[in-house]
């Protein structure tokens, strides 16, 4: 059972990663655009247990770190995504009202994207990564949050079906 869940999860994560790197990154959107892969990882965690959230965060963060366009050291996104995904899963776990509510998940995902970017900035500054002008950072932070707010409602039903299929749960959003 666990092998099946792991295999399906890995395949879906790799598919989303390839989609992000090969297609979504091609289109330059105002305000920095969005990362469908990070949105997916956060939605996945919001619907999972904290343990699964942490492991999903580890896998997702490691894949982001492997992206050639990633500027920080390998492990930086891994650390951020472990904490963000675990945090999101922890907040929603055990409370079926929040986990089944798309508005709550949307709020968690937007907050997760914003906080993970802020965490990247802080850890990047500590590790000596050049991050650019303040105005550009603010534009990207606000832009990514708005894009996430716009994109997540459309992707939530699809991601929820992927999750339900992988974990054999009947509940979908």
């Amino acid at each position: 059972m666990i092998t099946r869940q792991l295999t399906f999860s890995a395949l879906i994560f790799l598919f989303m990663y390839t989609l992000q790197e090969s297609l979504i990154n091609q289109v330059r959107l105002p305000g920095g655009g969005f990362s469908i892969f990070i949105i997916f990882a956060l939605v996945w965690s919001a619907m999972s247990t904290p343990e699964v959230g942490a492991v999903a965060g580890f896998g997702a963060g490691f894949l982001v770190d492997l992206s050639p366009s990633s500027s920080g050291p390998v492990g930086q996104w891994t650390l951020i995504m472990i904490l963000t995904c675990f945090g999101i899963a922890f907040l929603g776990f055990g409370d079926d009202k929040s986990r089944g509510n798309p508005i709550t998940i949307l709020f968690l995902v937007v907050a997760g994207v914003f906080l993970s970017e802020v965490a990247f900035l802080i850890t990047g500054a500590l590790l000596g990564v050049n991050l650019g002008s303040i105005s550009q950072i603010v534009i990207i932070l606000i832009g990514m949050s708005i894009w996430t707010l716009l994109i997540t409602p459309f992707t939530l039903p699809i991601f929820s079906r992927f999750h339900a299929f992988t974990f054999d749960t009947g509940s979908r959003i």
């Binding site: 790197e21 920095g32 982001v64 990633s70 500027s71 990247f120 990047g124 650019g132």
Partner: peptide
């Protein structure tokens, strides 16, 4: 391909 802006880099 254009690099993703999530890491605030331009590639």
């Amino acid at each position: 391909s254009q690099g993703s802006t999530q890491s605030f880099s331009q590639t």
